Simulated assay, not measured.
Amino acid sequence: MSHHERGQAIGVDERTIRRLIKQPPFVFDTTRNITLVRIAEPGEKPTPRTYAKKMAAFVRRYLAKHVAEQRAKLVAEKKALSDALGIPVNSAKLNKALSLSLTPEVLHDLPDDEKSETAKTRLLKVLKWLSNLRERETERDFGCLIGLAKVWPDGVQVEILKIVFDGWTEFMSGVKLVQHIEREANRKAKKADPTAQVTEVRALFFDYPHIPTIRKYWKVALDMMTTHYQTTEKNPPPSFKALNPGLWKHLK
Results as ranks from 00 to 15, higher is better:
Pro24Leu: 10
Pro25Ser: 02
Pro25Cys: 02
Val27Lys: 01
Phe28Val: 04
Asp29Val: 12
Thr31Arg: 13
Arg32Asp: 08
Arg32Glu: 13
Asn33His: 15
Asn33Leu: 15
Ile34Gln: 10
Leu36Arg: 14
Leu36Cys: 04
Arg38Ile: 10
Ile39Met: 07
Ile39Ala: 07
Glu41Leu: 14
Pro42Val: 10
Pro42Trp: 07
Gly43Ser: 09
Lys45Met: 11
Pro46Val: 04
Thr47Gln: 14
Pro48Cys: 09
Pro48Ala: 12
Arg49Tyr: 15
Thr50Gln: 15
Thr50Pro: 02
Ala52Cys: 03
Ala52Gly: 07
Lys53Ala: 11
Met55Ser: 05
Ala56Asp: 07
Ala57Pro: 00
Arg60Asp: 11
Arg60Tyr: 03
Ala64Thr: 07
His66Pro: 02
Val67Pro: 00
Ala68Phe: 11
Ala68Glu: 03
Arg71Met: 05
Arg71Thr: 07
Glu77Ser: 12
Lys78Asn: 13
Ala80Asn: 01
Asp83Ile: 09
Leu85Gly: 06
Gly86Phe: 04
Ser91Ile: 06
Ala92Ser: 14
Ala92Phe: 07
Leu94Val: 00
Leu94Arg: 03
Asn95Met: 02
Lys96Cys: 05
Ala97Met: 11
Ser99Thr: 00
Leu100Asp: 00
Ser101Lys: 15
Ser101Pro: 01
Leu102Met: 15
Leu102Ala: 08
Leu102Tyr: 11
Leu102Trp: 02
Leu107Thr: 03
His108Lys: 15
His108Thr: 13
Leu110Ile: 02
Pro111Ala: 06
Pro111Glu: 03
Asp112Val: 14
Asp113Gly: 06
Asp113Arg: 13
Glu114Tyr: 13
Glu114His: 15
Lys115Glu: 03
Lys115Tyr: 12
Lys115Asp: 02
Lys115Trp: 04
Glu117Ile: 15
Thr118Met: 13
Ala119Ser: 08
Lys120Trp: 13
Lys120Gln: 15
Thr121Tyr: 09
Thr121Arg: 11
Leu123Ile: 09
Leu124Asp: 08
Lys125Glu: 01
Val126Gln: 01
Lys128Leu: 07
Trp129Asn: 06
Ser131Arg: 12
Ser131Lys: 13
Asn132Cys: 08
Leu133Phe: 12
Arg134Pro: 01
Glu135Leu: 14
Arg136Cys: 06
Glu137Thr: 11
Glu137Gly: 03
Glu137Asp: 07
Glu139Ala: 09
Glu139Asn: 08
Arg140Thr: 09
Arg140Phe: 15
Asp141Thr: 08
Asp141Gln: 02
Phe142Asp: 02
Phe142Leu: 11
Gly143Asn: 09
Cys144Phe: 12
Cys144Arg: 07
Leu148Asn: 03
Ala149Trp: 09
Ala149Asp: 04
Ala149Thr: 01
Val151Cys: 12
Val151Phe: 12
Pro153Thr: 02
Pro153Ala: 05
